[in-house]
């Protein structure tokens, strides 16, 4: 969406046009959601931040200084509310600069895995699963950056910078580095699995011989 178009929607919504509001929500909800997910909030916390951000916007519609940069306003608001709620829940907050926290992993019996299994059935499921697993093994800062970049529709670098509190100039190099790392992880996971399959086959062969 063009900046002029966004500014037009903000002005229309501020004037009471609910269709304009819906268009704004539909366009930017992917970005707002991606940011809450990037901060690794629990589902209820992510839901609270998501809703708080939209309620906040509804009250600020006629007070936003640069309506054409609404995406950056939303990204900044979501980041601040994510940090706030992470503090109130008393958890460690992964920040882009310092995080080395353990991110956990996809538990094979978790609801997340169940959703994964069902949803990915139509895709090249194994490849997608490998990719998601590799993504989850990245450092927190890479996961956060890539998750925001993966928002649908893709955000501008100004929005990404606002979402993560990082200079726009460092986004491109960080993205390249994180994608390199993801590629390495993916290659490692795929070859580890092949090795495992290979061992399994070898074992079977040996037991057949014996």
């Amino acid at each position: 969406m063009e900046p002029d178009e966004i500014a037009g929607l903000v002005r229309a919504a501020a004037g009471g046009d609910s269709a304009a509001w819906t268009a704004i929500v539909e366009h930017f909800s992917g970005l707002v959601w991606a940011i809450t997910r990037g901060y690794r909030l629990s589902p209820p916390d992510a839901a609270d931040v998501f809703q708080t951000t939209w309620l906040r916007l509804a009250e600020h519609l006629d007070r936003i200084a640069s309506p054409e940069r609404l995406g950056a306003w939303l990204a900044t608001t979501t980041r601040r509310e994510s940090l706030r709620i992470a503090r109130s829940s008393g958890r460690t907050v992964p920040t882009l600069d310092t995080t080395l926290v353990d991110l956990g992993h996809v538990d094979d019996h978790s609801p997340e895995q169940a959703v994964l299994d069902a949803e990915l059935a139509m895709l090249d499921a194994e490849r997608a699963r490998q990719l998601w697993r590799s993504f989850r093994e990245l450092s927190a800062r890479c996961q956060q950056l890539l998750r925001v970049l993966m928002a649908s529709p893709p955000p501008s670098y100004a929005e990404v910078g606002a979402a993560l509190g990082m200079p726009v100039g460092s986004i491109g190099p960080s993205r390249a580095r994180c994608l390199d790392r993801l590629r390495q992880m993916l290659a490692g996971n795929v070859s580890a699995q092949l090795l495992c399959t290979h061992r399994h086959q070898k074992k079977r062969l040996e037991s057949t011989r014996a």
Binding site: S29, G30, W33, R37, F50, V115, L116, E119, L120, L123, A128, L131, W132, F135, L146, R147, L149, M150, S152, P154, R175, A176, L179, L182, R183
Partner: peptide, 18 residues
């Protein structure tokens, strides 16, 4: 990079949309 990013984008859209 762009190819890998596109692939990841599809996976994310499938399992972690709003």
């Amino acid at each position: 990079h762009a190819e890998l990013e596109e692939e990841l984008r599809r996976v994310v859209a499938q399992i972690d949309s709003v």
